[in-house]
Nucleic acid binder design. Sequence first.
DNA 1: TTTGAATGAAACGGAACCGAAACAATTAGC
DNA 2: GCTAATTGTTTCGGTTCCGTTTCATTCAAA
Lengths: 116, 116
Amino acid sequence: MPIALRPSQSLRLLQQFTLSEVRDDAPDLTLRQMAILLTIYLDPPPHTVRGLAARLGVSKPVITRALDTMGALKLVSRHRDQLDKRNVLIRRTVEGALYVERLGDAIIAKAMELPI
Amino acid sequence: MPIALRPSQSLRLLQQFTLSEVRDDAPDLTLRQMAILLTIYLDPPPHTVRGLAARLGVSKPVITRALDTMGALKLVSRHRDQLDKRNVLIRRTVEGALYVERLGDAIIAKAMELPI
DNA sequence: TTTGAATGAAACGGAACCGAAACAATTAGC
DNA sequence: GCTAATTGTTTCGGTTCCGTTTCATTCAAA
């Protein structure tokens, strides 16, 4: 059975989620950064700058800069591909996995609280 | 019956939603702007800068700047409260309602596509 | 009426982000 | 080997956002 949401439920869920993120002490990611992070953690590896840029429909510098920021936050890490040294492989980190897990928990909690 | 989501479903839903927003031509709002916009459109009015700042747990300048940006996008409008001219009342707009409605539709569509 | 509190906006310096273009490093094709 | 293509990064000028502080306006209380 697919997940069926009514319009008011979907918007309330999004509101509660964004509010919890804003209120939280954890660093706020931009929408783009969040899309990149989730793609790295949900889609099967390997992940490259080029591949992520294509997945998001943005330019490569957008990915590079987002990886700079999230790398400083230790949410992802970069490593040169030894088979093709032009490539950079983006890998998951423990901190990133925790961050993503926390996102999922927040959504589940807010979904549970939704009025019927 | 409350909305029950499994962790993988909640994260996949968030990924699909953020990806659709990033890919979309519509201007990307920051998480804070989105929280403000949804609060204005979902919570009962009146909405003031001070009230929104308290609701989000941020400072007033954060609200003022976000209203500047979203006002330029015509997603919200500002009006002086004639009863207490210190207050600024934030009101909804047609464009903002459409933007919010589109957000809800995107979530519903992505939720329907989730694997069981 | 005058002092103090409350509200929202503006100013400030610093940081991050944007699109576009140019760039070095590496690989592929001939 | 040598040219062309690919990959990711850097640079550029400009914009937006941030936190903090300061300010103007308005209301409330004495």
